[in-house]
Design a protein around this nucleic acid. Structure first.
Lengths: 192, 192
DNA sequence: GGCCTGCTTGAACGAACATTCAAGCAAAAC
DNA sequence: GTTTTGCTTGAATGTTCGTTCAAGCAGGCC
């Protein structure tokens, strides 16, 4: 018997790039074939169909995101400082050429029709990220406050993921974060 | 010569509903034909192509949005109170069945490829809305502060337009707004 | 060595896509 | 009343879509 001759993670990584950039509907299987280097038959055997590959790409993207957040919040400077770093890195991303918001948010908006399973998958992944912030915040304050603050963080993240398309918006976003999340230990040196 | 036998505004309004719900790529001309009641030939004569109709829909949606904001901020209770009302009405919208974020934001994210003219059109419309808030705020405070506050409002609006998909998020959004925009005259009676 | 198993290949499929255009038609112009 | 003008019709166009599948192929197993 022959084992799969491709690296599944690498294929999924390429799929993330394609789907993240163009969205679900605007990514054709022809583009997928080109981006992954696989032939149609191999893709359909390994992932069942376009939706299966997309689902796996969304999963992998979400895992990366959660890992990055966990690592930052588990870091030596503590939870609150870690949150600041995560938020600042998102601002940083928005200044780079080819900035593309967040794959989960784009998917949630694109496939927002009621009951669409990919929309719901993206929503649940975003919920998990909010739950992640909440669980870390519960080390710092009581449960209800932690939940409210996690929601407030998500609202600001969502805002930045859209506002980031505006050129030269980084400074404005930094100011807004300091105003909207005053309980975070902002470093004024960051505020160039 | 025969004049157009359809009501252009009505057609555009139907196009808004379709494109707003499904996005640009996932709306087929067949669906457009059904939604508008026009035959393909009439659509192509009147709007040139799918992109032309979409552009006109985006224009009309943006005009409606700006008008609603202007009316609220010109209202008898003053600019700041008007802003509160606009924001509260957005929270209200998110609680309704079939909630669908904001057409401009969805378009900006869906067609985010560098240089896409529809992406840029949506971006410029969002900029105009920010400029609208700024011009009204300049009646209340100095220019630089007005600009910063307008940006902060937009960030919160963007956040709500995404966070609103989460069930039962209305109360959390109200709290976040009061915390993030403390210079607005919030009515505690609204805070059920 | 010869069979089996299961991945790979890529041409082919029907369906759906955006768009076109010749023919039909009705109101305006004279 | 006749001609002209320009919107409407809807079948047809060529392309691209997601997906399938028979044939090819190569390592694992006896």
């Amino acid at each position: 018997m022959a084992k799969a001759q491709f690296d599944r993670d690498e294929v999924v990584e390429n799929a993330i790039q394609l789907f993240w950039q163009h969205g679900y509907s605007a990514s054709s299987m022809q583009q997928v074939v080109k981006a992954t280097g696989l032939q149609p038959g191999s893709i359909y055997l390994a992932f069942k169909n376009k939706e299966g590959l997309f689902r796996e790409a969304l999963d992998a993207y979400s895992d990366h995101s959660k890992k990055r957040i966990k690592d930052a919040l588990d870091g030596p400077d503590g939870v609150l400082k870690g949150i600041c770093k995560v938020l600042e890195s998102m601002i940083e991303q928005s200044t780079q050429a080819g900035y593309n918001s967040c794959f989960l948010i784009k998917t949630q908006l694109e496939l927002a029709a009621e009951g669409n399973t990919l929309h719901e998958l993206a929503s649940s992944k975003l919920d998990e990220i909010e739950a992640l912030f909440r669980s870390f915040l519960e080390k710092e304050c009581e449960a209800e406050l932690a939940q409210q603050r996690a929601a407030c963080i998500m609202l600001h993240i969502f805002g930045m993921r859209v506002y980031g398309y505006k050129p030269d918006s980084a400074q404005r976003m930094r100011e807004s974060l300091r105003l909207g999340l005053p309980w975070l230990p902002w470093d004024d040196n960051d505020e160039r």
